[in-house]
Nucleic acid binder design. Sequence first.
DNA 1: AGTGTTGCTTGATGAATGTCAATGTTCTCA
DNA 2: TGAGAACATTGACATTCATCAAGCAACACT
Lengths: 226, 226
Amino acid sequence: MSEELKQHLSRHLLFARLTPAQLDRVAQRARLLRLDEGQPLFAQGDPADRFFYVVSGQIKLSRLSPEGNEKVIDIVSAGNTFAEALMFLEGPAYPVNATALGPSELVSIDSRDFAAMLRDSIDTCFLLMGDMSQRLRGLIAEIDNLSLQSGTCRVASYLLKMAPEDRDEFRLDIPKGVMASRLSVKPETFSRILRNLQDSGILSIKGAQVTIHDRGALEDRAEGLT
Amino acid sequence: MSEELKQHLSRHLLFARLTPAQLDRVAQRARLLRLDEGQPLFAQGDPADRFFYVVSGQIKLSRLSPEGNEKVIDIVSAGNTFAEALMFLEGPAYPVNATALGPSELVSIDSRDFAAMLRDSIDTCFLLMGDMSQRLRGLIAEIDNLSLQSGTCRVASYLLKMAPEDRDEFRLDIPKGVMASRLSVKPETFSRILRNLQDSGILSIKGAQVTIHDRGALEDRAEGLT
DNA sequence: AGTGTTGCTTGATGAATGTCAATGTTCTCA
DNA sequence: TGAGAACATTGACATTCATCAAGCAACACT
C-alpha cells in the first residue's frame, strides 16, 4: 500500500529530490483517495491541512460568488499537484472548491508533515519555489487574458492549446459548460462563439469532436485580429 | 553607502533571517536606484536578473496587449518587494512593465546572488515561500474579482480597502486613470461609477479627496447588491 | 495673467456579453 | 426501447461597458 503511494509520488518533480527515508516518511502519512464523478474534495474556506497529487482523473477548482455564480479557476489533471502553496500560510484555508470531474484517484499529503521535512531538503525547497513561480506567472497570464482579451480570443487560444501539436482533430476532454466557466464566459456565449468559428469555416465541431480547418485563422482570432 | 542599503533591507521580512554576513554579501552587490516620475525600470520581456525593494515612491506594474492597451496589474508601494519570484524560473523574463509613478527610490538586488545565498538560509526560504503563497492567494482573489464582480463592485471594494480604518475621509494616492486600469475599467467608466456613487449619496469626491458618507451602502455595492 | 498640456468628466452611440425562455441533443438507466 | 435528466444550442431582449468626440478643470511654465 505505502509502496503504491511511493510509486505514484516519485513520478512528480516535487518528490524527486527527497531521500528514500524522507519519501518513506511522507508516504507513511499520505493517503490514497478515490472520488466519484462530481464528488467534492474540499470547499472554499475549509481549513487547509493537506495538499494533493492527482494520480488519475481530473479535479475542478472553482470559486463561488456570493450570488451563487461559479467560476472555474483551473482543471487539474493526472500527474499534477494542487494546494501545495497553502502550506506556508498562517491559518490556511482553501481559497477554492475542489470537485472531481470524473472518477479520480488522488494522493493526499499532510502539509505540516511535508513542511517539516522540507527543512531537511533545500533542493526540494527550490523545486517548490520554482513550482510556485510558474503558478504565479500562469495567474498573471490569466489576468492578462481576462482583462485584455475578448471571449472569442480566450476560446480561440484555449482551443489552440488543447490541439495536440499538428493534430488538427481532437476531443474536448471536459464538458463544454465547465470549459466555458474556465474561460469566463457563459455557456450560451461559449456556444455562440463556437458557432461563429464554425460559420467562418475555421473549424467544425460534432459533439466533443473538434476539427481545425484553418489553424492560421484561428491563431488570428486568438490574437484579437477580429 | 552599503550601510544605508543594509539599513533599508533589514526592514523587510525577507531579509530578517539572514546572518549579518549574508546580509553584507547581498548589500555588497545591491544597488540604490532613483527614478523620476514616469521613468521606466524594466519592460515586459526583459531578462529578469534582479529583483527590487521599494524604499520610497510607487512602482506601477502593467502589461501591454498586442493592440497597445495597458492593464495595470499592481501598484507596489514603499516597504515592499517585487519580481523576487522570478528568481526560480529557467530563462527568467519580467512578465510586466515597471514604471515609477512618482519620484522613487529602490534597492535592486541580484537574483542569482540572492538565490545562492538562500541555500544557506532555510528560514529565509520559508519566508519567501510564505510571501509567494500570499501573492498566489492575492492573484486568485483578483481573478475572482474580474470574473465574478462588476466594475462597480470592484471600485467599491477598492475604495473600502483604501479607506483607513474608521477614517471616512482620505485622498486617492494614485491618478484616477491608473486606478481605473488597476481595476480593469476604462477611465470614462470609472468616472461614471464614481458619479453614480456620489448621486446615490454614498460618498463625495472633490479632486483626489474622498469622503465616505454611508459605509454600509458602500459595502453593499462591493458585495454586488446593486 | 495667458496658454498649453494633461487628465478628468460628460454625452451619444454601439458592440459584446449576460439573461431568460424555449427547444434540441445526448446519455443513462430502468 | 423509451423516459427522463442533464447538457447544449438558439432566439429575443436587456445590460454593461467601451468608444468616440467634445468640453472642462487643474497645473506648469513662460
